[in-house]
Nucleic acid binder design. Structure first.
Lengths: 192, 192
DNA sequence: GTGCTCTTTCAGAATTTCCTGAAAGATCGA
DNA sequence: TCGATCTTTCAGGAAATTCTGAAAGAGCAC
């Protein structure tokens, strides 16, 4: 081998590049799978597939991406990409990044798991818990004066639901305004 | 008035019945509103409108109802009523009641708020948390060996998500297996 | 078996949600 | 102002979900 160093070098180089491209391939596969599956899960979570896919893509992107890159990666239309990117920005799960000398916008995901959790928790509270509370409150109020046994039972049921949901609401606030470390500490105590 | 007791009596009777029917009316209105709104909310929660409506209807029903009564009350088809009643039974939110001398089935809702909560929490965990964990686990595993910086970053992100979701899963188990009183005690401490 | 009542299933219709592609709107440099 | 580039909107189409109504199944009394 020492007689033909350039050959050895070529050989090693080819092995090296093969490993690198194999690895890159493996990574791309894993990431694509993550994006696809996370998208499918999104529907279960009540958010649309594309939004979940974009979120997955950007959570695992080493660099911020443009709308066009997202379109290309997920093979979706401009309208779809745009709408869902902006929706994610509105949630607070993505940030818009502007680079100097660049006209177009780049998007970057919040990657901190606890941050993601608190954002999602707040949003779900707003969309799911608060409207429920409003309804329960109204129905409890409207049935307060009714004296019949059925009326009483209805009112009681409303009150119980209202109390519980109100309670859940406060808990949600409390937990999602905690610092990560504190929450873990608390939860650890709970799990022990 | 004492001269015509029968008239007074009639008068009072009419006032009495009027109040009763007014009350019954008010109750019906409040209940209908609850059913309608709860149904609308259901879509936000990722369950379908009819299912949520049936649940609301039965949670506020003084007596178990039959399929036909549910159909009439909500003005829906037999197929729809049947499917959603059975789905609610599968969740554990309704029980089938058989009355002696009756061929048809009656349905009765679980009314205890804490029970409802634990049932829903368990179901959501099964449908939302566990599949997510499976995906994260798989993607973390597939990227374990990758040495490139991007690969490391991806693997780390998967691990962080996996840890957090696994944690949430355990918390959910722990909380929903608690007795009501204990949970309230804990939560109160948390809220103080 | 026959008739009656209640339950279950499911093909196709209705509805809702989501996506595309194209056009209009903004911003900026020349 | 014009042209180039990027962003935003939205009408109409595609896809997914939900509902209906009718037919088939199941159990029971006679």
């Amino acid at each position: 081998m020492l007689c033909f160093p350039e050959i050895a070098c070529l050989f090693e180089f080819s092995v090296f590049t093969e490993n690198v491209s194999e690895e890159a391939d493996k990574l791309k596969k894993a990431r694509d799978e993550f994006v696809a599956q996370w998208g499918a899960l999104g529907t279960q979570w009540g958010i649309n597939r594309t939004m979940a896919q974009i979120h997955a893509l950007l959570m695992t992107a080493p660099e911020p991406l443009t709308t066009d890159e997202v379109m290309a990666e997920l093979e979706i239309s401009r309208g779809n990409a745009h709408t869902n990117l902006k929706e994610l920005v509105a949630w607070g799960l993505l940030r818009v990044v502007v680079k100097k000398g660049e006209r177009r916008e780049f998007f970057e995901a919040e990657k901190d798991v606890w941050q993601i959790f608190t954002i999602v928790a707040r949003e779900r509270k707003r969309r799911e818990i608060e409207p429920a509370l409003a309804i329960l409150n109204k129905c409890a109020e409207e049935s307060r004066e009714i004296k019949s046994p059925e009326g009483r039972a209805f009112h009681d049921q409303m009150r119980q639901l209202e109390d519980f949901v109100g309670f859940a609401s406060k808990m949600s606030d409390r937990v999602s305004s905690m610092k990560h470390g504190l929450a873990v500490q608390l939860a650890t105590k709970l799990l022990s």
